[in-house]
Design a protein around this nucleic acid. Structure first.
Lengths: 74, 74
DNA sequence: TATTAATGTAAAGTATTATTGACATTAAGT
DNA sequence: ACTTAATGTCAATAATACTTTACATTAATA
């Protein structure tokens, strides 16, 4: 569906929260490290299901991890 | 990624809010009617991007339209 | 009863997301 | 210098989301 309009704070959260590595996050979210890399780079937006799982790893509401457009919640 | 673990309140919201038809919602969200049908039926979960767009049509936070697992927010 | 709008269903094709495997780079520690 | 952990990247494939087209059913209304 065209270019990616969804942004995220994954990288920031990995460091802020727990010093979690890409691999640790990938494991907890049930995906491969490559998927985390691609998401951090903004290559594409995840499925809704994966977005929920990642938000759950960070124990945050989905919309504090992912945002639509170029207006992160803050 | 296996079976669909994401649920939604799309059908309910279409009626509660505006008596919006599947086609109207589809147009506003920028997808085809078949996509709305499939989502209402729970055939699959949308991309995160589409989830944001649908939530935006209803003027609701994403997590009031979509939920993970079988625990809708209420 | 003919028409129209809304909905359901199905199959084939395209686009996007995610995996797998492999190799390169950087920084830290021994 | 060597090793190891973390990250970046690339290409091929698999899996899933979405489109397109087409036809069926139901309910409302002229």
């Amino acid at each position: 569906m065209g270019k990616n309009l969804v942004g995220n704070h994954i990288r920031k959260l990995r460091f802020n929260q727990d010093e979690m590595t890409q691999l640790q996050l990938a494991d907890k979210a049930g995906v491969t490290r490559q998927t985390i890399v691609a998401l951090e780079k903004g290559n594409y937006s995840p499925s809704l299901e994966l977005a929920f799982r990642i938000a759950h790893v960070f124990e945050l509401p989905l919309e504090e991890v992912f945002f639509y457009g170029d207006n992160p919640k803050q």
